[in-house]
Design a protein around this nucleic acid. Structure first.
Length: 572
DNA sequence: GCCGTTTTCGGCCCGACTGTTTTCAGTCG
């Protein structure tokens, strides 16, 4: 049975939440949550692991019991224990947990005392001032619940990394200007360079935390102060972005940075390691028998735990601690490794600028080469190139390449894959290109097997080189199309197809997990911007971040090669 | 329910803030 990792994880998550409401042992609950998380971060498909007879207990946080439950989900699509729980408790209670301030204990109490099962029930009870009468609740909690239910539409939103950068810069500048601030860092998932962030975590080293907090909450863009203590505060901005502030003294900078960068799971692992060695680690420092151990940098703390330094992008508890113990961490790719950009568009299709304008910007960045890769014509909206237009397109590219001695301009195309896996241009046209990118922009909803075959067919065209934005997902907009990506990755490895990490912040595709999976399968990668204007050539940094999160090293990425070596990669 | 260079039991990270209480449970990160 075809079932995706996310669906398995979802069931385990529900199981954990319902057990929590029921009041089960908290470590049992945590076990379900941990397993769900572990499955979500697998590059491999669990159903295929089962098909090939692999032992699921080799996965992190999955033991004998959960392995058999996962097998049950994969073979039947259901989990009988979850069904049983849902007979005892309405599953709509899970929606109540989404509200801030409502955890399992309170949800259970509302259910027991007021028979509240749904958000509608909750709304009615709040309007009738019934909630304040329940033990453990009061007027404030009731009001908070009512307000949240009123503007529920903005809930659960995560912001794209590029949007957040824009939104947060003025706030950062404002805080930086306060004179008691000696240092300010944005920690959290922002520092880990996740593709989206739920909130911003400011870590500030300041001499006067009270004043600092005061200034923080008085910032003009603040819509609501969520909490305000002596060292910690949270606010909601008018843009609906939540921002947390934590103030610590200078000697706590490294442990605080480590702690607030997360991820939570990574931290928990570190603290456990610490305990094994007799250390207590918290955001204020590292302690042995209540005595502070001097740690000035994050490196110092990792070293104390006998670990290699772990870059923020890797701190997701996906095996980085084990690797650090054995000095087996990857030597992550960096911005400076990139020597060219191999996907961009011009006025010849849906780009905003001329070839020359793109070239000049690329020279300014310092690239050794670029490829211009306008669309083929299948998708009408991109106003792309048909076979008859290819000769003049190539002529212009040639002229521009000769005009600029500072850079090599490769001729390229982003050709559409048709429904049956054939390509939108003739081999005659493709043959004339230095580099051929193929990608999918239509028929997203084919049945999984058909979609897989379609891609494999396209890969077998002997003129194609790069599979662009391979899953087609758009961040916060749509999921990728469904196909057997492992099979495609393996085929790419055996047939010298390069897979793209698309740096456009709306795509970031391959994502971190699939990048790692491709890298583990020894597929060559390329990091491109897919720029549609000169400005968008700056998207490279997002692609690099995503690659770093996927444990990718420079030597796996073809556009770190110099010009003479990179063109060899396009011969098939 | 998971996990183990203290492995088959006995642990399971740690602290801040809020609202409701009157010393703390619940929630959050």
């Amino acid at each position: 049975m075809i079932i995706h990792n996310n669906e398995i994880a979802q069931k385990l998550d529900e199981m954990g939440d319902l057990l929590a409401i029921k009041g089960a042992n908290k470590y049992r609950i945590r076990a379900y949550k941990n397993a769900a998380r572990s499955i979500r971060s697998q590059g491999r498909r669990i159903d295929e692991m089962i098909d090939s007879g692999e032992d699921l207990t080799q996965l992190d946080s999955v033991g004998k019991d959960l392995a058999s439950k996962i097998k049950e989900i994969v073979s039947t699509g259901e989990l009988s224990d979850l069904k049983k729980l849902k007979n005892q408790l309405p599953s709509t209670l899970l929606n109540l947990l989404d509200l801030e301030g409502l955890g399992p204990k309170r949800v259970k109490r509302l259910y027991d005392v007021l028979e509240i099962e749904t958000q509608d029930d909750l709304k009615k009870a709040a309007d009738n001032e019934k909630i304040r009468e329940v033990k453990g609740f009061g007027k404030k909690t009731e009001n908070n619940i009512r307000e949240q239910l009123l503007d529920n539409n903005e809930k659960d939103r995560r912001f794209r990394i590029d949007k957040v950068e824009e939104l947060i810069e003025p706030f950062r500048a404002y805080l930086q200007n306060i004179d008691t601030v000696s240092d300010l860092v944005i920690a959290g998932s922002y520092r880990r360079r996740k593709e989206t962030v739920g909130d911003i975590d400011f870590l500030v080293i300041a001499t006067d935390s009270k004043n600092m907090i005061e200034a923080f909450t008085k910032y003009e863009e603040v819509k609501k102060v969520i909490s305000k203590g002596n060292t910690k505060s949270s606010v909601m901005l008018k843009t609906e972005l939540q921002v947390d502030l934590r103030v610590v003294e200078k000697r706590s900078k490294a442990p605080a940075l480590l702690y607030f960068t997360g991820s939570k799971k990574h931290n928990i692992k570190l603290r456990k390691l610490g305990i094994d060695k007799g250390y207590k680690i918290n955001e204020y420092g590292v302690f042995k028998d209540d005595k502070r151990i001097k740690c000035e940098t994050e490196e110092d703390i990792y070293k104390l735990l006998n670990l290699e330094y772990i870059e923020p992008e890797l701190r997701e508890n996906r095996g980085e601690i084990k690797a650090a113990k054995r000095n087996k961490l990857p030597d992550l790719i960096e911005n400076k490794d990139i020597k060219g950009d191999l996907q961009m568009h011009t006025k010849h299709s849906d780009g905003s600028s001329s070839i020359k304008e793109m070239v000049e910007k690329a020279i300014e960045i310092g690239y050794e080469y670029i490829a211009i890769t306008d669309h083929s014509s299948y998708i009408g909206v991109t106003n792309g190139l048909s076979d008859s237009e290819i000769p003049s397109y190539l002529d212009e590219l040639k002229r521009v390449d000769e005009e600029y001695s500072e850079i090599n301009v490769l001729s390229g195309i982003e050709v559409d894959v048709l429904e049956d896996g054939k390509l939108d241009l003739t081999d005659e046209s493709l043959k004339r290109m230095d580099v051929v990118i193929f990608s999918i922009h239509s028929h997203f909803n084919l049945e999984e097997k058909k979609q897989t075959d379609r891609i494999l067919t396209a890969m077998d065209n002997k003129y194609v080189n790069i599979f662009a934005h391979p899953t087609g997902r758009m961040i916060n907009k749509r999921e990728g199309y469904k196909y057997d990506i492992e099979k495609v990755v393996q085929h790419a490895a055996s047939s010298n197809i390069i897979m793209e990490i698309n740096g456009s912040p709306s795509r970031l595709d391959l994502d971190d997990i699939n990048s790692k999976m491709a890298s583990d399968n020894h597929v060559s990668l390329v990091i491109n911007t897919d720029a549609h204007s000169p400005k968008e050539l700056s998207f490279m940094k997002y692609g690099i971040s995503q690659a770093r999160r996927g444990w990718v090293q420079a030597d796996e990425v073809i556009n770190t090669l110099n010009f003479t070596d990179v063109i060899k990669k396009f011969k098939r």
